[in-house]
């Protein structure tokens, strides 16, 4: 897809989305807002998992860093929400850079295990330092713009989503994106051709972490309440499922996966604990019939339509 075509599609889709607050009731608008948060999360996780092959389990943790940094600064230091979100994003990015620098030399299963450990450590700190974070009681924080309006937060999250998608698209279609692919396909070959593998990985990890921090920070202000559920493994696996079911390594996959799974989870929520079972069955069905996700299915059914990786 050319840049021009990408921006035209993005512009048209955004235009259609801008009409949603006029036609949707508050509940449906909430579902769309949650979906947009997950699009930001899944698309940015796809940048490292789908394009460099690094499976990190710390993505939700970085969203938590963004959310808690912004929340604590606005509540305890009186900072504005906007500045809080910017600081949260930066903190997540810098932490991502640090974590990436320390553990990305490992790669493979070791990277996954290290990020899993980092994620759990962060959750335990947040839960136990309740004097600052209020732990599982939840920290109530102000909205992005007061007085609170769902529609206003919808537009802010939409802007965040567009920013995330543009950044991801630009990266994967740049020289850096080619390097990402090269590292994913054959690390040794990439290294022999002069690609600085570690630098590529760390860079992807830091950008992805910053985008997760941005998503977490804005989402926290939308909910006006942050809890250790944001940096939890539950949320991490939900994001992972969205990217995998949508189609890992494709640009549109995580977007489709995020909307599909958020809407599905709303419908099956009525079945109480059984909704987890239904969710698992859907994931199993997808793994059996469409291992490459919804985008893989689309490629299979519409080979001539130009649906590509």
């Amino acid at each position: 897809m050319s840049y021009k075509r990408f921006y035209v599609i993005l512009f048209l889709a955004s235009g259609l989305f801008c009409l949603l607050p006029l036609v949707l009731d508050l509940y449906r608008l909430h579902v769309v807002i949650v979906s947009l948060f997950y699009v930001m999360m899944a698309a940015s996780w796809n940048l490292i998992a789908g394009y460099t092959g690094q499976v990190s389990f710390a993505h939700a943790a970085f969203a938590g860093i963004g959310a808690y940094t912004s929340g604590i600064l606005t509540v305890k230091a009186g900072m504005t929400s906007w500045l809080g979100v910017a600081t949260g994003t930066l903190t997540a990015g810098v932490t991502g850079l640090g974590v990436g620098f320390l553990c990305l030399r490992m790669g493979g299963i070791y990277l996954s295990l290290t990020t899993l450990g980092f994620s759990e450590i962060l959750r335990i700190i947040i839960t136990n330092e309740y004097d600052i974070t209020r732990g599982t009681m939840g920290l109530q924080i102000p909205p992005m713009i007061a007085p609170y309006s769902k529609a206003v937060h919808f537009f802010i999250l939409l802007a965040g989503t567009l920013l995330t998608l543009i950044v991801v698209y630009k990266i994967i279609h740049s020289n850096m994106g080619l390097n990402f692919r090269a590292v994913q396909n054959d690390e040794r070959a990439a290294r022999s051709l002069g690609v600085n593998v570690i630098r590529v990985r760390v860079l992807a990890f830091a950008v992805s972490s910053a985008l997760a921090g941005l998503a977490g920070a804005i989402y926290g202000h939308y909910l006006m309440l942050i809890t250790p559920e944001i940096p939890s493994l539950d949320l991490q696996f939900f994001v992972l499922s969205m990217a995998v079911i949508g189609g890992l390594g494709s640009f549109a996959g995580p977007i489709i996966g995020s909307f599909a799974l958020t809407i599905l989870s709303e419908y099956i929520r009525a079945y109480g604990e059984y909704h987890v079972l239904v969710f698992g069955l859907v994931a199993l069905a997808m793994a059996r019939f469409a291992p490459q996700g919804i985008m893989g299915l689309a490629r299979q059914f519409m080979p001539a339509s130009g649906v590509r990786q």
Partner: peptide, 15 residues
């Protein structure tokens, strides 16, 4: 859980 409580309450009202 506070987060589930807030979203559940809102869901009861809006949905």
């Amino acid at each position: 859980a506070p987060d589930k409580a807030a979203s559940g309450f809102e869901r009861l009202v809006t949905r």
